[in-house]
Amino acid sequence: MLWAGVRAEAPILVGVFPFGLIYGALARNAGLAPLPAQMMSSIVFAGSSQFVAAKLIAEAAPGAVIVLTIVVVNLRHLLYSASVAEYVRDLPLRWKVALSYLLTDEAYAATIVHYELDGVKPESHWFFLGAGLALWLTWQVSSALGIFAGAAIPPSWRLDFALPLTFIAMVVPTLLDFPVVAAAATAGVAALLAYGLPYKLGLIAAALVGIAVGMILETRQ
């Protein structure tokens, strides 16, 4: 079952690997030393929040603002946790702790499909573990390679631009209905207006404005 999880995760890993490389290189460009950059990949272990945190560290934002931003970017994990909870409810606590640590976007994607198709069987948690560990190992190795290579990339390559490009690639496919488009547009414009806010609070303030606008418009529809 462990290998079934690894195999189900494999196609996703092909896309994750370059992300890890870009993260590692960006973290080094942001001024993080190799060890902290790698530790962020194992302690926080959530790609998009790591990108954002590296950017805020480069801008010397206060720690509390960085932590708050990490939490908001990672809020969606509450939903994953609620979604898989019924499938893992009978496992011992140590399994729940381990699987929670491994509950990333990508491990969730592979695992929830498995649970929904096959239901809960005595070995199902090994599938979850296999998918989670495969993703974990890929993320650690690709981050390390990016950190290693990042220092060698000259500034004229404009690597910092890879961050907004990555986020454009992530956000465009989500723009499927009016409330989401409005949330994205308002948050973007608000971020321009709030750019000068102290403590680099502009990002989080703009995001909250966008979320509020999306929710209001959705209620009206």
Partner: peptide, 21 residues
């Protein structure tokens, strides 16, 4: 309310980074 808010988090946060950048 949190459940409804969650789907707006990625587009809002990502745009708030992309626009100034």
């Amino acid at each position: 309310a949190l459940h409804r808010a969650l789907r707006f988090v990625p587009p809002a946060v990502l745009s708030a980074i992309v626009f100034p950048a």
